[in-house]
Design a protein around this nucleic acid. Structure first.
Lengths: 255, 255
DNA sequence: ATCTTAAATTGACATAGATCAATAATATCG
DNA sequence: CGATATTATTGATCTATGTCAATTTAAGAT
């Protein structure tokens, strides 16, 4: 029944019965950074963590600010972006549970983080966490793997930004978003239909991600509807009608 | 005398007098991955390494191939790129000494690597190196830091690809390339003038990097010459005449 | 030197996507 | 429920960059 790519959260959680209550209830105990820690070590780390909530739209941290906290995303979606001095903006990544946010080993962030939906995170003070990381190889290893995944996806998006047409970009975004949302929902123990999801980004947010304008994004949606590749209800609820065709548009090779 | 950002190579090397001869002579002994290893541990790692050389243009590894080896760049410049099924290509990064190439913990590369100049690398068999990494936290830590730097620069380029004009992209590339080349040359113990360098990339390679065409890149060079921001000798030798102006074009904020 | 080949520049034109403006759909608030 | 504000769509242009083609420059071979 379980999707092979998804950590079977419910089952694993039961092994953590002696965790601190906050960790026991944590949505990402079994798949996030902490999954590498046993109850004792986690107890230790728990001393420096704090749960924080952000409403959709709120800023989590800022480019120029010194990093005070790192965080693990427990629920919701976080947007990472950069801006040019004249205000032009580019989204450089989306964070889903159980992603880590912040720049390890540096005292300055190199991007803005804001809450795309309502977000719950578990925060760690920077200095303490860096020390902790250096003395806990298993934790550092896990974080390294999360970082490698982020690098992979950043490079994937570079190909998209540099070489895809507007239509292809939108197709690629829809597929990527649907997959990640699907995984995140299964993680929460929710039912999830892969081809049917709520697009949580506004057209403006999508255009910041794809390096396009709002109008161009909107036109591509219309084209995809016309071609019967997707259907849209209320401008926010997407139905993927022809995934193979979208895959081809998005350049997902199928030999 | 030393640039603050550059590891004082000569001085440090003298501390490694009992290294294996190959490591002793290594250009990146003091600043690469191995800088975290003492002579004994390095002796151990040395058993699985092999030096390889590639001529400019040669392929180092391929997207679909299973990764057999990882490598550290000892000298030369490596180009990392991705291609879409229909052949469109995007360069996703340049590797300078002492960068690591390959995807740790995965058995498949997600990009092509080829030699931009003549290149010397030190290779490690994949499986052995992954094992070694897991049991040597200091090595993994260093590699993690190198990876974080790569992620930072990938995101920097995402902003460029998505939101900069052709002229701005070329300015940003020239500045980035001049800095990295400068550092690499100092590392080699060579004299280096920051504002005066050989552009080792062809117009085609530049256009693959910037998500543009050859012709557009060429036109931007002409514009920069006209504005007296740069001078070009023999199409390959760049003189930066007005760095502050280029910095502004490239969006490097100067408060 | 001269010939050959590859790379870079420049020009003329086409086009994808941007910009500006009007309308429509949806959400919010009293 | 209607009034207002926000977000999305659609249409009519405009423009930066792509495309195609001709010329120039440089590099290598003989």
């Amino acid at each position: 029944m379980h999707n092979k790519n998804v950590v079977p959260f419910i089952t694993e959680k039961s092994d953590c019965g002696s965790d601190h209550p906050v960790c026991q209830a944590c949505e990402v105990r079994a798949c996030g950074m902490c999954s590498e820690l046993n109850t004792d070590t986690l107890q230790e780390l728990r001393k420096i963590t704090r749960t924080k909530e952000y409403k959709a739209g709120e800023q989590i941290f800022c480019d120029e600010e010194p990093t005070e906290n790192y965080a693990t995303i427990k629920s919701g979606i976080v947007k990472l972006s950069k801006i040019l001095p004249d205000g032009r903006q580019q989204t450089i990544g989306l964070g889903f549970p159980p992603d880590f946010i912040g720049r390890a080993f540096k005292d300055k962030n190199s991007s803005f983080a804001s809450a795309l939906t309502d977000v719950t995170v578990c925060t760690f003070p920077r200095e303490l966490f860096n020390d902790y990381l250096k003395s806990t190889p298993s934790l550092e290893h896990k974080l390294f793997e999360l970082t490698l995944n982020e690098l992979d996806s950043a490079r994937e998006w570079m190909l998209m930004l540099g070489r895809m047409t507007a239509l292809e970009k939108v197709a690629a975004l829809l597929l990527d978003f649907s997959d990640r949302l699907h995984k995140a929902r299964l993680l929460q123990g929710l039912d999830s239909e892969k081809n049917n999801f709520e697009l949580l980004l506004t057209r403006a947010e999508i255009s910041d991600f794809l390096g396009l304008t709002i109008e161009t994004v909107s036109r591509q949606f219309s084209t995809l509807k016309q071609k019967n590749l997707i259907a849209i209800k209320n401008q926010r609820f997407i139905d993927i009608l022809d995934r193979p065709a979208l895959d081809i548009l998005a350049g997902h090779e199928n030999y």
